[in-house]
């Protein structure tokens, strides 16, 4: 059992293992997102208040979920890297960061687009959008800090510490932004905190969320593989691999 995990935690072992795993997640992501998009956009009923514009929820909510989950995943990877010195964890965190920033951006963009029919403006200082914007800055900070170090190992450690500090702060930021928002705009309704959605509306949403998570795992596996190759390019097994492939 332990030997299996040990092998998995080594870049070489993970590289072989993930090669078998990642196609399944890519396939799952394609099927789920495809089904979710068709169902959500074509068959789910229109919202009685917002009409068809509510359908952007099928992109916005999964993206927002992922944006937060990826940061937590990066923090966990950072913890594993700092405590047990497993370099694979840091490689995974490196691979995840751009996707997380991208998802945050998608959530922001879809929120802004949603704002046009809902509020009549491209941007509203809505509590969720505001904390999403701050999360976006946190992502940029982590990516920039990693890049700012000359030594890769120091950059990895610094990014890990910052991610862990950030993940402790995310709930505090969320809570304080919500408090701020209710103090200033008690009347406006928030785009996603709405009462009971009928089944035919939230089921496609659930499928989309699952699809996005599969997509996240698939992208992480694939990107981690390329980070492994890049970092271990001096190692013999990578050279042999390159030799085999031509």
């Amino acid at each position: 059992m332990w030997a299996f995990f040990h092998k998995l935690a080594s870049p070489k072992g993970f590289y072989a293992f993930s090669a078998r795993l990642s196609p399944w997640f890519w396939a799952a992501a394609a099927v789920l997102i495809g089904a979710g998009v068709v169902w959500g956009l074509a068959f789910a009923p229109a919202d009685y208040q917002q009409g068809n514009s509510f359908r952007i929820i099928y992109v916005h909510v999964p993206a927002a979920f992922l944006a937060q989950s990826i940061f937590v995943a990066m923090a966990l990877a950072g913890l594993v890297f700092m405590v047990w010195k497993i370099k694979l964890a840091d490689m995974a965190a490196t691979a995840m960061a751009p996707l997380g920033a991208g998802m945050t951006f998608v959530a922001l963009l879809s929120g802004a687009v949603w704002g046009v029919p809902t509020w009549g403006t491209w941007w509203q200082w809505d509590a969720r959008l505001t904390s999403m914007l701050i999360l976006f800055f946190l992502y940029i900070g982590v990516i920039a800090l990693r890049g700012a170090f000359d030594g890769r190992d120091s950059g990895s450690r610094a990014a890990s510490v910052l991610t862990m500090v950030g993940v402790i702060n995310i709930p505090i930021i969320k809570y304080s932004v919500e408090w701020w928002y209710t103090l200033h705009q008690p009347a406006t309704f928030s785009i996603t905190s709405r009462p009971a959605m009928p089944v035919e509306m939230w089921l496609p949403l659930l499928i989309m969320v699952l699809g996005f998570y599969s997509f996240f795992i698939a992208v992480t596996l694939t990107r981690t593989r390329s980070v492994i190759l890049h970092r271990e390019s001096a190692k013999r097994w990578v050279r042999e691999l390159a030799g085999e492939d031509g």
Binding site: G151, R152, D153, R231, E232, A234
Partner: peptide
């Protein structure tokens, strides 16, 4: 004792 820095 062994020390590796950035893959070297």
């Amino acid at each position: 004792l062994a020390c590796e820095r950035d893959g070297r």
